[in-house]
Design a protein around this nucleic acid. Structure first.
Lengths: 206, 206
DNA sequence: CCACGCATAGTCGGTTCCGACTAATCAGTC
DNA sequence: GACTGATTAGTCGGAACCGACTATGCGTGG
């Protein structure tokens, strides 16, 4: 068994990615990620950033270059990618693409207990979700269109493409469920008030 | 602005859900979740379970019932849902369904740097992902079919339906990207060696 | 010309999370 | 009837994570 990845925080991947271009200090990494809208793909938190950078340095994937300072501002430590880091970056990416990871999105959790909401409430909530998703999707597609207009290579914004595809799939699923509930092909096992469970009131021994 | 949810761990939702049926002790919750395959929707970790139960008790959504003990085994504290807990459970569910949460799946992160893999490697990795996803999807569909054979109400396994839908969407997206790369509609901005960045070599001052 | 706000750069401490561990009982089995 | 492995039930310490905070420099409008 391969021992688990020494740096698991995905923000580390972003750091490595940035450093393939140029050496940088952590603050700049955060700013750059935000500029490029990559903060939609990576959870960029100042605290985590410094933690992750330290971790990457500890395992030797990046190295502290210079420690400069302008005026009396706090020091800026500039890091750059090591050769090992370059390999590991590609390796990590490759693995992330190849191998789906079990994840636990909150909507999956909610759906698992959808029954407890009762049919009417469930339908309403799903419809609201659909409308929020629609807005999101339109937003992403606007970005995509704008990028195309400016001849930005599609590969540079492929993550938006993916995000749109997944959001659309989710919206469609919600719509289907709402429809099925309307048509009666997805029926509600009776439990009008969520508390009154047949199982519970049967009063099992033990 | 509503103050953030006092218990954020989604495992708490599962705990509340179980307690709508009957009082239980934490270990039993974990076992039950596993039996019902809900460990696919909730990250069930022993440690987290006890933490979350304590948190739920602290905010008064559940209450310790009895503390029994068999023989000299460790005590089992049985918890049950309070009235407040019942309301909050529905409220929480409703909100989770209504309002999509920004999440950071690892594949999204990977896709954001897909360019760095180089075209050939990217295609291969994507194809492998497709095949893994296909296996997963077939597995879920088998479960679904089996459940139908046994006349389990569809609502009880709706989360599997959702999971299948999303996995399928992801597979289709991967296939599309692979195809587009083959057809040349998704081209690789040249960057055979990931280091050489046009932006960088333009050489901004300062 | 200085007060105020925004940008720069990073530290720090508390909470959350989780895996590894303890420890007793039970069900076989040789 | 003692040993083995699985099941029951939970504890605990360390790692990861993140938000709130510090502190300086820069710009600008009244």
């Amino acid at each position: 068994m391969a021992k688990r990845r020494p740096v698991s925080n995905l923000l580390g991947l972003a750091v490595l990615g940035l450093l393939t271009e140029q050496p940088m200090h952590p603050y700049e990494m955060g700013a750059t990620l935000r500029e490029r809208k990559l903060d939609g793909s990576f959870k960029v938190r100042t605290g985590s950033l410094y933690d992750v950078v330290e971790a990457l340095q500890r395992v030797g994937w990046i190295a502290a270059d210079t420690t400069e300072r302008e005026g009396r501002r706090p020091e800026r430590t500039v890091y750059s990618l090591t050769e090992l880091g370059q390999l590991e970056f590609a390796q990590w990416l490759d693995e992330l693409v190849r191998t789906p990871v079990k994840e636990y999105p909150s909507f999956l959790a909610a759906v698992s207990y959808l029954g407890a909401l009762g049919q009417e409430r469930a339908v309403q909530a799903l419809q609201e979700r659909v409308s929020v998703l629609d807005t999101e999707i339109r937003g992403i597609q606007a970005t995509l269109a704008e990028a195309e207009r400016q001849h930005v290579p599609r590969l540079f914004i492929i993550e938006a493409d993916y995000a749109a595809a997944m959001a659309t799939a989710e919206r469609d699923w919600c719509l289907r469920i709402v429809r099925e509930m309307g048509e009666g092909t997805l029926t509600w096992p009776d439990r009008p008030e969520p508390t009154r469970s047949a199982l519970a009131s049967a009063g099992g021994s033990s």
